[in-house]
Write a protein that binds this DNA or RNA. Structure first.
Lengths: 370, 370
DNA sequence: GCACGCTTGGTAAGCGCTTACCACCCGGCA
DNA sequence: TGCCGGGTGGTAAGCGCTTACCAAGCGTGC
């Protein structure tokens, strides 16, 4: 247009057709390998394409083919809890678990030539639902992390596009993919109570509305109680799946002079990370003075001191499974309403009181590598 | 179609027009707030929209408006180094720094009603460039992390869509956004040599082709040498920006009986994490026996033992800046060719040998929160 | 009271693709 | 030699929107 302002001219299929001396239909056929065009035609088209650097426009293609080859993914980003100066801390927190899941989704999507369209919502955002709905129409289907839409809206939206929830609840019109919270938490509770003999245990929660959190909480509590130990929970023990949230809970507990239990099971690894940090800051030894465990087995859990005992979920596979489920709904018309549970395994490391070398329980888990 | 198979019927603008008893043009005008329609018209349209749950199709809108409201982001995922059984480790590594940047991009994008279309490439993937080019046509512009495209292809692609590189190099047709490697590394080197008096220092690198890595390496080396200390590098010191990569370097060094320097500056925090872990495993104390530093200041760095001394980059802001630069190119026709450098600051914590309470250098940094 | 101008709604073109449909060419058979 | 069928290329319709353009309705000022 003017001086150095780059033109950004994208050739269209018409340009290619003209350059190759064929019709646009032929170009399209060559590109999409339809109806076996003559070698000569094919060659001329390919040459023109290469010369012009032609790449078909995604929007036009999507409109015509009725397939965008895009999967929308919605994650919940940590709520910005304004009051105390902690805002920035939460804001900057990394969402390792969701990010890792997304990596799994993305890799699976690549195999089908799909891309991942990301949207994060802060739950108490005023118009988060508008954003999710808009995302829905930019994609062929949606993967929703951790209950970002209420059942009502979920039902309404699932009438328009296929939806898979991650760590949500399955409904007649949506499929859910999650890890085995029950099995994992049960193993963990038994290990802490029966193998280590802890008598007082607490659960430090994640987002209150998260189905994962609810299931872990309930299972852990029930199992601890059933094993004859005493279980603590309540509003003081409410975290937010983030390190800062876990640390905050400990700080308050300590400040209030509340007695600490012998073991704390955290809703996830990130929380455990913050908890361990806070306890250590106050001169308490983990696991010497108090045992702490996580959930997920995110990579950093393997580099912490002490090594974090946790329940491993097949994180990337969770994402890949969600994508495949969605893909089959989008492309093969597969029906919704499934609930896919992937197995979890207890990974005994150090923070529960096991020694790195000799775990008190014989059958070592499938070796948490290294 | 058949039994329970959800129909996924998306109403079109024609359906809305019919329901509201107006033309599609009126519907479009109401929705896009053009030309101030009569209150009555507006009301009827809004009602029909609400009733049908109409959401305009992204592809059609994009095609017509010539704007997709999508920004493509390409990250480089860790190379799967097949030989030793380490595959899974690398595969599962979380990419905290890129993920955090993307969060910044995404948040900035939301303010403009853009979404983020993600694509990860493994550099020695056979057709990664095909995927990047395809991504380009699904978006209005591209943000490329860490040199994922060679200059040739970059030049070619930048003729078609606006491109911003993150931690790359600016070219006449692309804008680059990065952190101040020079300033950060210089401060770090001086701190280690002048304040702590270390005499032998090494740099443990990231991806060899990464401009960030090259700049950090060169600056650190030059500064150490200039300060009169001795600098070690070389092929043994080649990591890959991941914890596993850093750990591997240490393992090899130790296995080969190589003498370790007094201080190791790592290409980034993730690497430092692996290095600290590996050293500790071998009974070496950080920083007692050897000092280790990172770069980036990712959140977990604040929960490690020892607390990691590092160079802080404004991570989310890096992403937000990249988006804004791209947005101005897409929508305001801003020219490319800029190079935006964001400031970095040295964050002295424990792993360099500073004590948590009394850093050897008086002017404490802007308090790394908490 | 009429012409003019401003406002508002409708019609239709077009964004860049895919593909149904048709016209054509060619070889093989009667 | 004439027909028919298989296979190829071209034309045009349409995917669901936005918007230029036009027609109509209304209020004003002379």
């Amino acid at each position: 247009m003017n001086d150095g302002g780059t033109a950004h001219t994208q050739p269209t299929i018409y340009d290619v057709a003209r350059a190759a001396g064929v019709s646009i239909a032929s170009v399209s056929r060559v590109l999409n390998e339809r109806r076996n065009p003559l070698p000569d035609t094919k060659a001329r088209v390919m040459e023109a394409v290469a010369e012009l650097g032609f790449i078909p426009d995604g929007a036009a293609r999507a409109l015509s083919a009725r397939l965008k080859e895009v999967v929308g993914v919605v994650i919940r980003r940590p709520t910005v809890t304004a009051p105390d100066g902690d805002i920035y801390a939460d804001e900057e927190e990394s969402l390792q678990f969701p990010d890792l899941i997304n990596r799994g989704v993305e890799v699976a999507a690549q195999h089908r030539d799909f891309n991942l369209l990301l949207c994060s919502v802060d739950v108490d955002d005023h118009d988060y639902s508008r954003r999710i709905f808009a995302l829905a129409r930019k994609s062929d289907g949606l993967i929703l992390h951790d209950q970002v839409l209420d059942p009502d809206q979920l039902a309404r939206l699932s009438g328009q596009v296929p939806i898979v929830t991650l760590a949500g609840v399955q409904t007649p019109t949506t499929t859910n993919v999650g890890g085995d919270n029950l099995g994992g938490m049960r193993q963990l509770a038994r290990h802490l109570v029966l193998d280590h003999g802890y008598r007082t245990l607490a659960y430090l929660g994640g987002h209150a509305s998260s189905p994962d959190n609810i299931a872990r909480h309930a299972t852990f509590g029930a199992e601890v109680t059933a094993s004859g130990a005493s279980f603590t929970d309540g509003p003081h023990w409410q975290g937010n799946y983030c390190a800062a949230g876990g640390a905050r809970v400990i700080e308050r507990l300590l400040a209030d002079g509340e007695p600490l239990p012998e073991a704390i099971a955290c809703a996830n690894d990130q929380t455990a990370l913050g908890v361990v940090h806070a306890l250590t800051q106050h001169g308490l030894d983990v696991p010497g003075d108090i045992a702490v465990t996580g959930f997920d087995d995110i990579p950093v859990a393997r580099h912490l001191r002490p090594l974090l005992t946790t329940v491993r979920q097949p994180i990337q596979q969770l994402g890949a499974t969600a994508f495949e489920a969605l893909y089959s709904m989008v492309c093969d018309g597969e029906k919704a309403g499934r609930n896919i549970i992937l197995p979890t395994t207890l990974v005994r490391r150090e923070s529960c009181g096991c020694s790195a070398d000799a775990a008190p329980v014989p059958p070592a888990p499938p070796a948490a590598k290294e």
